[in-house]
């Protein structure tokens, strides 16, 4: 039953990897390391939630990495202008939502493919951050803000709790709500969805807005964790998010995918990276291995579907 699900493809390799690394170096199972891995995975996961939704709707968002930087920068800017923390966080989130909405609007109104639109956004948003910051990081940030990224509840970092909450909400939204069903319908067959009365354009604009919002949340959490806003942060982050979603079974052709799968994909990538440094494999190897895993996981999925 569980193994028949799409996400299951990554589960067995994940368990295997986890056990193997841990049995070679037992420090891998240590609470500190587990917490570190969870925290690292949380950043990717939050952004990857948005990416998963966009991919399910047969879209693509390449602007995630730049939005991470934007979220980090605008929140920091608001904080240093002595705006209170909750409001500053809200401003950071809304800038991402606004940029995402703009991407979605351009895709819908001018029928420019998502690849082109969000590639353009990737450069433009990064450019804006660099122009505004002149390439200089913003710090120090208020302690109240840094506490979000640096403290924990009963040993569990707040970041992990936030990621879990967002993941649960997203999975519920996709699985149980009309909006979620509309996302799967649009990704499965846009034309049929439109003819069945689904407001396809609104759905598309909304998911890019949600994805943008989630990317800036990742950014502001990174700023809070580091205690500073780095203009170069988040470079290449969009590809990590896409990789996590795809390893977790989300289809690049739209219509299929789950947040649970993306969670497993994210954890897999984290365990892989962390495991390799535990086994003292050079960091240079990590990219090679992750690349191979992406190709193999999609290949296995294709193979499995052809046999059905």
């Amino acid at each position: 039953m569980l193994l028949a699900r799409r996400e299951a493809g990554v589960l067995l390799p994940l368990v295997f990897l986890f056990v193997t690394v841990g049995s070679i170096n037992s420090a891998f199972f240590g609470v500190d390391n587990l917490i570190n891995m969870l925290r690292a995975a949380s950043f990717t996961f939050i952004a990857a939630i948005g990416t998963t939704m966009v991919l399910i709707a047969a879209g693509l968002d390449l602007s995630v990495g730049s939005l991470v930087a934007l979220g980090s920068y605008t929140t920091a800017l608001a904080l240093t202008s002595s705006i209170p923390v909750p409001l500053a966080v809200l401003i950071g989130m809304l800038t991402g939502g606004a940029v995402g909405m703009a991407s979605g609007g351009i895709i819908v109104a001018f029928r420019i493919p998502p690849f082109i639109t969000t590639l353009g956004m990737l450069y433009m948003v990064r450019g804006v951050v660099l122009i505004a910051s002149k390439g200089v990081p913003i710090y120090p940030l208020p302690d109240a803000f840094n506490a979000i990224g640096q403290s924990a509840l009963q040993g569990i970092p707040y970041i992990v709790i936030i990621a879990a909450g967002l993941g649960l909400a997203a999975e519920f939204m996709l699985r149980c709500t009309i909006f979620g069903r509309a996302i799967y319908a649009v990704g499965g067959n846009e034309e049929t969805a439109r003819l069945s009365g689904i407001a396809v354009d609104k759905v598309k604009i909304s998911i890019y807005a949600v994805a943008g919002c989630l990317a800036t949340i990742t950014g502001l959490l990174q700023a809070s964790r580091l205690g500073s806003a780095q203009p170069s942060i988040g470079n290449g982050f969009e590809l990590q998010a896409i990789a996590a979603a795809i390893i977790g079974g989300t289809s690049l052709f739209g219509g299929a995918g789950t947040i649970l799968g993306t969670l497993l994909g994210t954890i897999f990538m984290t365990v892989m990276t962390s495991g390799m440094s535990f086994l003292r494999v050079s960091a240079y190897w990590q990219q090679l291995v992750i690349g191979a895993i992406i190709v193999v996981s999609v290949g296995l999925d294709q193979f499995r579907r052809r046999r059905l």
């Binding site: 069903r181 799967y184 319908a185 990704g187 499965g188 067959n189 034309e191 049929t192 969805a193 003819l195 069945s196 009365g197 689904i198 289809s251 739209g254 219509g255 299929a256």
Partner: peptide
Amino acid sequence: ANGFIRTLDVAQNVSLA
């Protein structure tokens, strides 16, 4: 092409509209 959605199951296609 535009009658059903193949990534949705039977019940989901029935309730689509």
